[in-house]
């Protein structure tokens, strides 16, 4: 296991390096020069000497390859540069906002699993029944409903029929006032978790259906085991493997895909941060966030691999004959 873990971590290094090169190059391809991007129209007031001094300060006078290695070297030491708009180190700005996004993603995941798993299991166990039909309709709607539509609808219903404005007032963190915080986060989390619940339901249902058709389930049934025991102990355990994959992959997407939901509900998370950084041309920040999210995404994929062993003892990563 330790050996496998080491192998996987080593395998991720080239991917992360590749991602850093990709992100670095993309930002370098942004038209216009970085000084103008930072200072806006005021850049026109710079004298030639001032401009050159600034370029030297940010290392822009060096060749691109050297710039990359300087940036990478600093990034490895936790220095992602300075955010021009926030006037603070990029990493510090990211870490300030990250808890909101993480909480949102975790809550969305809990909602998705709480809805998707039981519905998927019931749909499979009662194949072609009314509940199966409802479950499948839910999955179809969930996958077709974009989160910006659901979010807008939720705000509309809440404000018109219940006179609640979920995105008004200042954001309160979980540690300051848990109750108020959960009140602010629950609707964004539902919005984000809805389509995720649909994909969990679909995956659970099809995995359960496949497992329930296997010979060993028939054997268990002919031994006289009760359906509840068969479903829980024999079927669900095996059906969970693809569900874990989906949940893991989606968790990664949730962390990188909260932009729209945070924007609609005015939550100060990473998604809104990157959106604002893009519109304000704060490229060091865009670069930093992209790298941060990619790192999490890759780490989550590794964690999912390791989770498999916990669920399915047949999968071992140690090479024994």
């Amino acid at each position: 296991m330790a050996r496998y873990l080491a192998q996987r971590i080593v395998a991720f290094i080239p991917i992360l390096l590749g991602v850093s090169i990709l992100i670095f190059l993309m930002i370098r391809f942004v038209p216009g020069d970085a000084i103008i991007a930072m200072l806006g129209t005021e850049a026109g007031m710079l004298t030639e000497a001032q401009r050159r001094a600034l370029e030297a300060y940010f290392g822009l006078d060096k060749p691109v390859i050297e710039q990359y290695f300087v940036w990478l070297g600093n990034a490895l030491q936790g220095d992602l540069g300075l955010s021009v708009r926030h006037g603070a180190p990029v990493l510090q700005v990211i870490l300030q906002r990250f808890p909101v996004t993480l909480q949102l993603a975790v809550m969305a995941m809990v909602i998705a699993l709480a809805v998707g798993l039981p519905l998927g299991i019931l749909s499979a166990v009662r194949h072609n029944s009314l509940i199966d039909l409802i479950g499948r309709l839910f999955a179809l709607v969930g996958l077709a409903m974009p989160n910006f539509l659901l979010g807008t609808l939720i705000i509309y219903v809440l404000s018109v029929y219940f006179r609640i404005l979920p995105n008004s007032g200042n954001f309160v963190s979980l540690t300051t006032d848990p109750a108020q915080n959960l009140g602010q986060m629950i609707f964004p989390a539902i919005t984000l978790g809805f389509s995720f619940a649909a994909s969990v339901m679909r995956t659970t249902r099809s995995a359960m259906l496949e497992v329930l058709g296997q010979d060993y389930i028939r054997t268990a049934r002919s031994k006289g085991l009760r359906d509840a025991v068969i479903n829980r102990r024999h079927a669900l355990r095996n059906a969970l493997i693809p569900v874990i994959t989906i949940a893991g992959v989606e968790m990664g997407y949730l962390l990188g895909g909260t932009v729209i939901v945070e924007e609609i509900f005015a939550l100060p998370g990473l998604g809104r941060l990157v959106f604002n950084a893009i519109s304000q041309r704060d490229y060091a920040l865009v670069q930093g966030i992209a790298l941060f999210i990619a790192f999490n995404f890759v780490a989550i994929n590794l964690a999912v691999d390791l989770l498999y062993t916990a669920v399915d003892p047949r999968i071992t990563y140690d090479r024994k004959a």
Binding site: G256, G257, I293, A294, F297
Partner: peptide, 8 residues
């Protein structure tokens, strides 16, 4: 490219 979430 797979290491970056699609929307990002």
């Amino acid at each position: 490219f797979f290491a970056l979430p699609a929307l990002l």
